[in-house]
Design a protein around this nucleic acid. Structure first.
Lengths: 109, 109
DNA sequence: CTACATTACTCTACCTGTCAAAGTAATTTT
DNA sequence: AAAATTACTTTGACAGGTAGAGTAATGTAG
């Protein structure tokens, strides 16, 4: 399992990326992350909903209630134009960061 | 400039890596990071000394006072055996993390 | 020689993001 | 009817990063 300090700061972008693909609700995103990472990372519920609050406040995502199919009522999120721009920037930032950290992490093997 | 949340969690490893190369003191490390990253990342003094305290408490580094050449008295740090092992693990962890984040950040261009 | 810049380290208070824990509620399975 | 699963929310605590202020020694310019 990846430590939270390591993934910290990337969560906003990861969530945005998943919502970009299609509108999604919290529980679904949580399962999707576990699935795609093969359980190497599992987002905690409290963390996920904190991310939603933050992103919605910054108007990077919007929410609406979907029809209930099973379990509690689903709250869906869609990405905004602002959110798409933010995500694009985040991806660029990630590339730069990756190179910088590699500067210190490489050349030891 | 890289945001602190993005680099957070990697700082311990970066500092350890620099001390592994040779014994170093705080101010030197700060300048070295700015130099190597071409000022794309500058560690804040308070942050750096917080890292030292944390690493020393965990016995990953040890400190001793060096001879004063210019300015205040220099406090040098050397990496311990435990520190070397920790660094090695951190580097492995970084490789895994990089792949996981790439899972979400790639395939959008 | 004296003021200023630079080198060098320390401490405190604060902010932000993550998360454990506990709770609410609807639906499905046993 | 009870238990499991789906689904969301809130509160409080904790850890890492940082602004800002302070201490102190050495080098440099006028």
């Amino acid at each position: 399992m990846i430590r939270s300090d390591i993934i910290r700061g990337h969560l906003d972008a990861i969530i945005l990326r998943l919502i970009l693909e299609k509108d999604r609700y919290g529980y679904e995103i949580s399962k999707e992350i576990s699935l795609r990472t093969d359980d190497r990372y599992q987002i905690k519920e409290a963390t996920l909903y904190a991310v939603f609050q933050r992103l919605e406040k910054k108007e990077l995502i919007e929410s609406y209630f979907g029809s209930v199919s099973r379990g509690g009522k689903r709250k869906y999120y869609r990405i905004t134009t602002l959110g798409k721009a933010y995500l694009k920037e985040s991806i660029e930032e990630w590339k730069v960061t990756k190179n910088i950290i590699d500067l210190f992490m490489e050349g030891l093997d």
